[in-house]
Design a protein around this nucleic acid. Structure first.
Lengths: 81, 81
DNA sequence: TTTCATTTGTCCGTATGTATT
DNA sequence: AAATACATACGGACAAATGAA
């Protein structure tokens, strides 16, 4: 999956979709760490601000849980799981 | 206090007034942290841009002091205090 | 204990585009 | 035309929590 800088869909929503897919497919297993904001921003060539927006979405969807100073983790009890 | 989206008074001035009142009434005591931009924007359902305008006003009035990376605090020595 | 790297939290400034008033 | 408001996006900086050296 690649992020399209110029698109109808905002970059942060595209990134959220990418990570959401990995969670729902099991590629990112429950309890494991989601790549750090720094890593994601490097990998996709986007700003940290944009990464954080994506994470905010996933938190609202209760797909991930964030621990300050530690990281963001895939929830063990996924909504509707 | 509630912000009226459609009003003679701009939203950012309404928000500034709300926080100003809490400071002057002591509900927000000197030295304590003012809710973060993110919190305020969520609580009132307004944009970050608008929150920041409100904070700029309060800073100009010297009611609050902002510490980068930490937060915005109620001044201990209020103007005319 | 102190130090250090990592990671998230918050803030500052800027910019573009859209829409409304 | 100008001010207000929202959404998006970028970059830099410092603070605080964590954990490891």
């Amino acid at each position: 999956m690649t992020i399209e800088p110029v698109s109808e869909v905002p970059v942060y929503k595209q990134l959220a979709a990418i990570i959401r897919d990995k969670i729902l497919s099991g590629e990112l297993a429950p309890g494991t760490v989601v790549p750090s904001e720094h890593t994601l921003q490097q990998e996709h060539g986007i700003a940290r601000d944009t990464v954080r927006r994506a994470m905010n979405l996933l938190r609202e969807e209760q797909l991930v849980v964030t621990v300050p100073g530690k990281g963001t983790f895939v929830r063990r009890q996924l909504p509707g799981g």
